[in-house]
Design a binder for these strands. Sequence first.
RNA 1: GGGUGCUUAGCUCAGCUGGGAGAGCGUCGCCCUUACAAGGCGAAGGUCGUGGGUUCAAGCCCCUCAGCACCCACCA
Length: 1083
Amino acid sequence: MPSTIISSTAARVAETPPEGSGLAGTIGELETLIAEKAKDIRAIAAGRRPPPGLDVPRLTERVENVDPALFAHLPMAPDDAQDSEPPATVPLADEPEEVVTEPQARARAPQFEPPVATIPLDTEPEDIPTDPQPREPEQEVTAPPAPPAESETTTSIMSTTATTLAKTYDPHAIEKNLYEAWEDAGHFRPTGGETPYCIMLPPPNVTGSLHMGHAFQDTLMDALTRYHRMRGANVLWQCGTDHAGIATQMVVERQLGQKGISRHDLGREKFLEAVWAWKEESGGTISKQLRRMGASMDWSRERFTMDAGLSRAVTEVFVKLYEDGLIYRGKRLVNWDPVLNTAISDLEVVATEEAGKLWHIRYPLEHGAGHVVVATTRPETMLGDVAVAVHPDDERYQRIIGKTVRLPLCDRSIPVIADTYVDPGFGSGCVKITPAHDFNDYAVGERHKLPLINVFTDHAAINDDAPEQYRGLDRYAARARIVEDLKALGLLVRIDDHKLMVPRGDRSHAVIEPYLTDQWFVRIAPLAEPAIAAVEDGRIRFVPENWRKTYFEWMRNIEDWCISRQLWWGHRIPAWYDAEGTIYVGRTEAEARERGGLGADVVLTQDDDVLDTWFSSALWPFSTLGWPERTPELATFYPTSVLVTGFDIIFFWVARMIMMGLRFMGDVPFREVYIHGLVRDADGNKMSKSKGNILDPIDLIDGIDLETLVGKRTTGLMRPEDAPKIEAATRRQFAGGIPSYGCDALRFTFASLATQGRDIRFDLGRIEGYRNFCNKIWNAARFVLMMVEGHDLTNPTEHTHSALPERWIRSRLHHAVRVFTEAFDGYRFDLAAQAIYEFIWNEFCDWYIELAKVELNDPDTPEALKRGTRRALASVLETSLRLLHPLMPFITEEIWLKVAPLVGKTGRTIMHEPFPRLEDDDYDDHAIATFDWLATFILGVRRIRAENNIEPAKRLAVKVRGGAPFEQLWLQEYALFVRQLARLETIERVEGGDSEDAATALAGETTILVPLMDLIDPAVEIERLTKELARLEQDLTRTEAKLANESFVAKAPPEVVDKERRRALDNRDAIGRLTGQLTKLRK
RNA sequence: GGGUGCUUAGCUCAGCUGGGAGAGCGUCGCCCUUACAAGGCGAAGGUCGUGGGUUCAAGCCCCUCAGCACCCACCA
């Protein structure tokens, strides 16, 4: 189905809170206790403001008296992750041949060996030599194709012996092979965990191809799927495709048209064969593309809306609704597409503002002199006029109400009626009434019992009920002729320019005619009512919640749904007619006959029409699970967990699924609806073929050269004259083509763009940044493997006391897991992505790896400590990979398979490993405080170095003065780290207030002095300090003003006031120290 | 005519129940320091659209206005 949008968000579905256990209570109490203790410690701390940029908790000497055990589990949000075992990785077997009509009984099959071993290690690096994209020269230099030897390593995806990674991150080398291995191993099938989790893929058009909206949406669904799978849920991502009635039929008709054949030339049966052939030919495209996205959907359960099974569901629903009086056939005014020759629903009509004319026409009074003037935008419909209406209170026309006027050109008399529908202020205040060609007029006609005169054919030409001279003319030709004739008769008063909303078909773009035909309708009100209630009472939750309003708005004003289409491609309506036109509905002709009590001699003909595509889509959540059979899948996975979709199909699809689900399953089809935004280009324009600004997700993954891109964008245009413009814009924007970014980078980009707003601008700069992130991860992993190589980390008997860096990085990881999980559970993929990005890059790579290097390179560090560090490197990396996996499935798997054995993990795939859980033991507030202080120290020195242009390699001799006892202790204990990371020669403690001229930085209560010598320009340093002082003083002024405000002190919460007091103290202290230094420099 | 959303650094956007504004990209310095130049280390840059209100305290809550976007709707 044509979703042009993208969405994401997850819901916390089916997570069982670990409440009620005695353990929870105990932990809760402990946490409270610890939290109070931590607060206490901070409160005691002398209130000096932390160094710029860091909030360093103040710890006093009392810290030393606190039981370290208390810091072992500092307070964290309770972990709501399930304590589940990793899901079994042995998939359920199923028959290779899929019998779509029958729900698949999930027979347990004997466990089979995973096909892992059969994957050749020497998979050929196929896409390296054939890479069609010429790259930029620089890229050639920086990212040369991996030589065969190396790519061999990278493609040996399941190798357990290789512990090294290729030197350069090359997504091509890993993605495809990994996906095939996953699929072959059956990793995407439900694993049978206790809690079901199910997402229905909005079925794309079977003959369509993947666009950015799909790619975005699929990324989010896959992330949710992988996340819940790792958390141990029994996960089904149900996939399949939609027959997309009108769209597909149009394509095939166009193909035939190029050969000069119409579908009528072929006849129904042959035409349908042609459509099926087209479906077979092009139907696999989108499935292949979905695989490129890494989508972990259960392909063994793939469905198509015109499968026998789903078709049976359609028939069943039609018959039942008919039996219940909720489907009826009637002659009504419908939206008619005169090009496609079919009725369409209200939703398929899009109104666009277009320039038109307003013709003022004189209708002579039948009796006596005079006339009325009517204004119309559609003069040709006057042939079907049956009245002229005025407002009942309109003074001007009181005299003529009830009289008749002579309809020009038609030789008919029509009455003047009074109806409040008329707006006396618009035009002349007189309206021509044409009930057969206007929805408003239709209503007026019903009120006044007016006849209906249809003057059009199916093709919107004038029919034989109109005056002879117009018959056979197209509506616009007729319009011109009629206007001419009126002018000749002197009945045309004037023509005004007029902007009007023109209804057009969303597929054909033809101007839609209100047209009187026999159609099938769903009586919608009885279905809408419970569907409204389900959202009102929260059985279905919209995310973001404001979409409720849109939903309610539409559902409360909903009109009957016209479901019949005069097409051939689709589900044929199960109704038959006898010679008199009596309707017989049944699942089969035999059933219809039987119900009607008809003998075999009665000739029945089936209704020619098919059902609206959305009719079958509305049943998707249960028809794909086997309904109307009562299958185990249906019992397990219905209601599904969340629907991920765009706001453009809330009415088309979401609302209808809710109505049908409630009606036929007695329950909602999904518990949450995550509505995502629309993907636009970097300039905020909607992507469309005609604008020539389409980006193909696959091109972002694989890269594409400029010429090919230009070719893609300029062929098959509706308006070929736009091609030069599109080509120029494309050449400007993508001068070097599009480089290959890989699927993981694309997915991460989508996740990070999935904010709550309506639109998502896709900017290449963003994806490039995340490709770099992939590269960063890759290289960090290479480093870890390099450091760990040849060392056994799995020795479980050794218990080394964790060093500070390790305690710190585990605490930060703990934090990242918490933020990520909370964000994910709230469908905030952007925040989740940000959390993992910051952790891996800014904390693990920028700091922890650097700290580890210092330790591992230091000859004096005991081997036991180094072992701990190696273990931590591997373990933190391994956990990070699991955290990242839902968003970046490929690179995480590739690396994990090499890292996992080092930490004693034997799983065959990361995708069935447990998602990281929060361990209280991993959070250490003390370690964070210590590290923050050390970092502040290092950053202070670095800043002095940078601002004074001291060469990075130059080792500095610094002096420190003052500092709280624990700061002194930290500096002493971690001098190695400080010296290496700040590049120091020596750290010398000086006493007293007197010191030489030096550049100054503050870390807590410690003053860092970098002696001037010949390295530092006093002028630079004076400027730097002056600026810093000004900032501090301004801050102090504000803080003091606040504290001087009595009502602030009286009314603000005590902790806020305390904070301000501490701030003031900190500032005064820092100002004092800096002022002293500045004075000295200025001497 | 109804309805919804948006307006924060040059650009694209975060900012959770109100307690001294952040990120990415871009820009400017200095570095090819043996995981990564797809990199490292530093820096600059914002009266949070306007006007008012509530509050000790407003990017955040209320009202006004302005601009932008979208959805729905029968003004001929």
